[in-house]
Design a protein around this nucleic acid. Structure first.
Lengths: 261, 261
DNA sequence: ACGGATTTGTCCGTATGTATC
DNA sequence: TGATACATACGGACAAATCCG
């Protein structure tokens, strides 16, 4: 049931909107005061509904990258990493399996560091983001909030080299073909698991339990990896039963994740 | 005792030579045959002695990036990953403590992946590099061989995003201020420990023991981190007993490394 | 087939900066 | 502060290998 994805566009607009806003922020956000384009301007320029734009801005605000005031406008709060060029360079030379493998090593590290440095307000923000993931109705917004949560954890971890790495992976992941992959992964069951795993991660972070956060994050990503491998298999089975290039490395993935509680 | 290091030049030339040669390799190495400049040309152009140039070329050859023939010349064998330079630009100001923290998370991952993918010839090369580290007389060449070994492990690991991360850290580490820091870290005892730890890492890789390689690498880096923190403390104690900015984060480092043997 | 030119491989004496006393 | 000791870098000289005319 719940066959997932009913948006009017296959390549969901959220990422396009998000990329556009980030690009704006990168070059100082139009004005010297850091004021961003209005929501309606963004709608027209990108040809998407105002709901989509607002969803993206909400996520960005929750992440702490922008802040908004009714009747005043949207303003940049903190500059994001500009990893786009690097990501573009690497995207062509890597595979989904490789990226998940890297995430499986990097994000647990970020979660552990995050647990040692998170302040109460950071945890509160994470809880809010996790709630938004659970409450999301369509897979597009769920993905949006989910990635926002992961980004927040990365930023709170506070290690610049690792954050750059995460931003790199995040950038690659937000490419078109990845969206198609992830669209297949949603089901009621997986959403429940997802939610529980998010809670476990945040709980460990809140308690300052680095080891626990690391393990919880690894389990979470392992689940995602498994789901992705399965949907990849389905795609191949249905469309081209011959090619298995992407799977040579998928076998090695279980080795990468060691201690799964 | 054994206070270590007294070179005549503080900013060691090896890194400059290496950077120059890598830059040459990046743009195809002068000629279509992949022939590099002669050693003496490099000497003149960079204003360093021939011994220094030869040392760098030796390391690059052992890494497998170039090959040389007496009476013929030096040739590029394999293009190096220079994505790290790009990433280094993206990453803003960072501290030694942050970089070591990141290494403590990334390099064990690379070692583990390396253990699952290393071929016998890769292991042989690692052994050779480790021997060179032990046999090195001066700290500059020891560092050169040591970093060559770590780079080889990263390359054999074969995960594109993680390799980029490593290249980023490697790039930062080869910057000036780091050299002064590392120059203080050598002593007879630390060399013995270093050698034993390298052996342990390579042994685990040779046996395909991912978990063992991961643990051994973490222990190795932990030792380096500790030595670095201590020499930082000495420098501060002698020169400016007041400033302790770089040490705020050093406290957090032990938290990053969990299971040390 | 030969010899000169070029390039890497090896060694050593000297110069120089740094640290310790 | 000055003198001594030390580690390293530099430059030259020579050997071996390769290429080319």
């Amino acid at each position: 049931m719940v066959p997932s994805s009913q948006g009017r566009d296959v390549t969901d607009n959220s990422n396009r909107v998000r990329a556009w806003v980030l690009a704006l922020m990168e070059r100082g956000g139009i004005g010297p005061d850091g004021r961003l384009e209005t929501e309606r301007e963004l709608c027209e320029r990108l040809g998407v509904g105002r709901r989509t734009v607002r969803r993206v801005l909400e996520a960005l605000e929750a992440e702490g990258l922008i802040w908004r005031r009714q009747g005043k406008g949207t303003f940049v709060g903190q500059a994001p990493d500009r990893t786009g060029a690097l990501a573009a360079e690497i995207t062509g030379e890597t595979s989904p399996a490789e990226v998940m493998e890297a995430r499986l090593w990097v994000e647990p590290a970020l979660a552990a560091l995050c647990a040692t440095r998170a302040r109460p307000e950071d945890v509160a923000r994470m809880r809010m983001l996790a709630d938004r993931v659970s409450a999301a109705q369509d897979h597009d917004s769920a993905e949006l909030w989910d990635s926002a949560l992961h980004r927040l954890i990365a930023r709170v971890a506070g290690n610049r080299p690792l954050i750059t790495t995460f931003a790199l992976l995040d950038e690659i992941r937000s490419t078109d073909e990845w969206q198609a992959l992830r669209a297949r992964q949603r089901s009621v069951q997986s959403e429940l698991i997802n939610s529980a795993q998010h809670d476990a991660i945040i709980q460990a972070i809140a308690e300052g339990d680095a080891r626990g956060a690391e393990t919880a994050m690894r389990a979470h990503l392992q689940t995602l990896t498994f789901a992705m491998a399965r949907s990849l298999a389905e795609i191949e089975q249905r469309q081209e039963p011959g090619s298995q290039q992407d799977f040579e490395q998928t076998e090695a993935l279980p080795l990468a994740a060691r201690d799964v509680a």
